[in-house]
Each structure stands twice: as C-alpha cells, then as structure tokens.
C-alpha cells in the first residue's frame, strides 16, 4: 500500500511544483502590476487562489487514475488496495495543499497592502473577514482541507466512472456532465423558480452561509467526500484492465 501511495505522490510532485511556481509567478507579476496601476483607495482586489487549487486537485485526480490503475494492475495490486491508496493520496495531497494555501495566503496578505489592493481568501469572500477570532487559522485549515478533499474525490469518481464506461458512456460523461452542470442545470433553475428556491435554500444551509459558519460547509464536504468515495469503491471493484 505504501508503495502505491509513494508512487502516486511522486507522479503528482512535478505537477504540483509547476502549479506552485505559476501561482507565485502570478503573485509577483500581479503584485508589481497592481502596485504600478492600482487605485490607491483600495478598489483593486486579488482572489481565486483557493478556487484554482480546487480545480487543480479535481483535474489531477481525473487524469491520473486510468494510467495509475493499469500500472498497479500490471504489478499485481488488488482493486481494494488501489482504491484505498487513492483515498490516502487524496487525503495527503489535500493536507499538503491546504498548508501551501495557508502559507500562500499569508504571503499574499503581506505582499498586497490592504490599503491599495484587497487580497481575499475564499473563506473570507464567503463568510466575511475576522471570523472565529484567534481560531481563524484552524477554521480556515478545516474548510480548505474539506473543500480540496471533496474536489479530489469528485475527480476520482468521474475518472472511475469514465474508465468503467463503454464508448457511449464515455461520450455521455465527457460531454454530458459539463453540459448538465453548466447549461441544463442553470436553465432548469431559471425555468422553475421553486427548484431554484429549493436548491438555493439547500446550499445556504449545507454550506453554512445562512448561519455564516464555514464548519457546516466543511462537514457537508466531508460527508460528500465519503459518499463519492463509496460510489467510487464499487465502480473500481468491477473495473477491468483492458
């Protein structure tokens, strides 16, 4: 098992380094540009790093599964072992990236003087600043960790589903999932106000936006991570290596 986790982390290492370099590059470039051109009354803002990490972790778990799965089967690993190693890799990766984000946010706050440029993290954008006082960093850690975990597990689920599917199934997943998420679903919300209200209320409560509590969102994400992982487990168990 440890060999599988080590292998996956080694494969992710280069991608993460490149991504981190890009982020720091943007930080430096953005910082210089905004200092030169920004309005001095703090009308400029910088944000989106956590969200980019969420997408990054989703993408890496979508892309890596197929190749890794086949290589592990080649080396005589059971599907249960492969699944468990991916879960542990997700947890380790999410933990590491959470630490990175917290450090990055800290540096960004130092770089971007708030009187000129407002740097806001995802949790501050959603729940406001100065939340939980001295517990702020612990709450931020839990929130970011849970967000990355659910994103990685969603990527893993899509990947397992895609690998298991036949030709038509793969087309449905590759085209259908984005179409549903970005076209059909918003359209349905527009057509049916009651559905919009229902979904809206569900999101307000499950993401802790109603009570302004990011820990509720963290719990929702962890439960969703567990659900996605269980579904992925059953899919992986019957995936053939072809």
């Amino acid at each position: 098992m440890s060999q599988l986790i080590k292998y996956q982390l080694l494969q992710l290492k280069n991608s993460f380094i490149i991504f981190a370099l890009i982020l720091f590059g943007l930080l430096i470039f953005g910082g210089i540009t905004l200092y030169i051109f920004a309005d001095s009354n703090g009308a400029s803002s910088v944000n989106g790093t956590e969200f980019s990490m969420v997408i990054f972790i989703f993408v890496i778990f979508v892309c890596c599964f197929g190749e890794n799965f086949r290589f592990f089967i080649q080396n005589g690993k059971s599907r249960k072992e492969i699944f468990t190693s991916v879960i542990f890799t997700e947890i380790i990766t999410s933990f590491g990236m959470t630490i990175f984000i917290l450090i990055f946010n800290f540096i960004s706050n130092v770089v971007f003087n708030r009187s000129i440029i407002a740097y806001s993290s995802l949790i501050e954008q959603m729940y406001g600043e100065n939340l939980f006082g001295f517990m702020k960093y612990i709450v931020q850690f839990i929130f970011i960790f849970a967000t990355l975990l659910v994103s990685g597990s969603f990527g893993f689920l899509i990947a397992t589903w895609f690998n298991r599917a036949g030709k038509i199934g793969r087309i449905l997943i590759a085209a259908g999932v984005p179409t549903f998420l970005f076209v059909l679903f918003p359209t349905l919300l527009g057509i049916f106000p009651s559905l919009r209200l229902l979904i809206g209320n569900f999101l307000l409560y499950s993401l802790g936006l109603k009570s302004n509590n990011p820990l509720i969102a963290s719990l929702t994400f962890v439960i969703t991570f567990i659900i996605f992982s269980i579904i992925s487990f059953f899919i992986v168990q019957r995936t053939e290596a072809k």
Binding site: Q74, G76, A241
Partner: peptide
C-alpha cells in the same frame, strides 16, 4: 494482492 504478486504478465497491450 499477495497471490497476484507472485504472477507477472506481459500482454500485447501494454499497461505501462
């Protein structure tokens, strides 16, 4: 796994 580790198969289709 403990049994499959005792086998090694190279097929026409590479899993590498």
């Amino acid at each position: 796994s403990s049994i499959q580790n005792q086998f090694y198969f190279i097929g026409e289709k590479s899993l590498y």
